[in-house]
């Protein structure tokens, strides 16, 4: 599979269609892992790999906030279906235009969050949690596709994990999240890994007024985690990078998916599917339901 990818990348670079390819590369010191790499020289496309260890969502590198790939010239990005959803969302949010980017889509049967789990075969056990409900195993949009098209997962219930959470009483849920957020060390890895956290000055860094207290007071942790989740409501594409990078193992994607379900139910909207769709929380409609205002 890596071979097909390398051929596409070489051609794009040689023809000058792009100046940089954002992809995954091997880690020499640890063969179980892959890492994000930027390839600008056609002779170095051999570095590119594609396998179930390629878990990172590379869309994060497309915005100025994280790494200004755009400054290197026109970019091609290697992207799984979930990554393409993030790209679609970023186009919708006007961070770049579709014409500025070549998407090398990869057909994906799932990835592993820990590379050592995959030793040549994907199973129900080692496949990552986020891949259980995947309906974009073939990316919804791409310029080149690596591999054969893969049909979406036929999940019985797209929101099984969320429903389990919802079965708890509000008190139990509150306690559950309090317990989770108590462990937060406010390293902001979740923010750094998220393609949608592209603000150059995060609300967490604003001091006048200070929206979120600094330090690891439980109240401050709660404020950060709620604000993070709310800022992503209706935008998060559930790629699960925040949860993967969290050093203390907070199930952040579960919280994201809870909000995504609310948006799906209340607004009939799923993020990352259509760059032309109006985002539900950034749309003014006279006919919006206001019955809850009393």
């Amino acid at each position: 599979m890596s071979k097909g990818l390398q051929d596409i990348a070489r051609e794009l670079l040689e023809k000058g269609e792009v100046q940089v390819v954002v992809g995954w590369g091997a880690v020499k010191a640890d063969p179980d892992r892959t890492r994000p790499i930027l390839v600008t020289d056609p002779d170095e496309v051999g570095e590119l790999v594609w396998n179930p260890r390629c878990v990172n969502n590379l869309a994060v590198y497309l915005t100025k906030a994280k790494s200004d790939v755009q400054a290197l010239g026109k970019a091609a990005i290697v992207a799984k279906g979930c990554d393409v959803k993030a790209i679609t969302g970023l186009i919708q949010e006007m961070q770049f235009s579709r014409d500025d980017l070549v998407i090398i889509g990869v057909a994906c049967k799932g990835v592993v969050s820990d590379g050592s789990l995959w030793q040549g075969e994907l199973t129900e056990e080692n496949r990552d949690l986020k891949c259980r409900f995947c309906d974009v195993r073939t990316p919804r949009t791409y310029d080149h596709l690596v591999g054969e098209e893969v049909p979406p997962v036929d999940a019985e219930d797209d929101w099984k994990d969320v429903r389990e959470l919802e079965e708890k009483t509000p008190r139990e849920r509150w306690d559950y999240w309090q317990e989770q957020f108590e462990r937060c060390i406010r390293c902001y890895a979740c923010r750094q890994a998220c393609p949608f956290c592209y603000c150059t000055r995060c609300i967490a860094d604003k001091t006048l007024p200070r929206w979120i207290e600094s330090g690891q007071h439980p109240r401050a942790n709660l404020a950060w985690n709620i604000i993070r989740a709310m800022h992503l409501a209706g935008r998060c594409v559930e790629c699960g990078e925040c949860e993967r990078v969290c050093p203390v193992g907070i199930p952040l994607n579960l919280l994201n998916r809870e909000l995504a379900k609310e948006v799906a139910v209340e607004y009939g909207y799923r993020a990352g599917y259509d760059s032309e769709a109006p985002p539900p929380f950034a749309t003014y409609r006279e006919e919006d339901d206001q019955s809850f205002i009393r």
């Binding site: 100025k64 949010e93 592209y198 150059t200 985002p279 929380f281 950034a282 749309t283 003014y284 006279e286």
Partner: peptide
């Protein structure tokens, strides 16, 4: 203008 990242949510939502 220093911190605006041009997502234009404001533009979309402005009645």
């Amino acid at each position: 203008e220093d911190t605006c990242v041009a997502c234009f949510f404001c533009k979309r939502i402005c009645p």
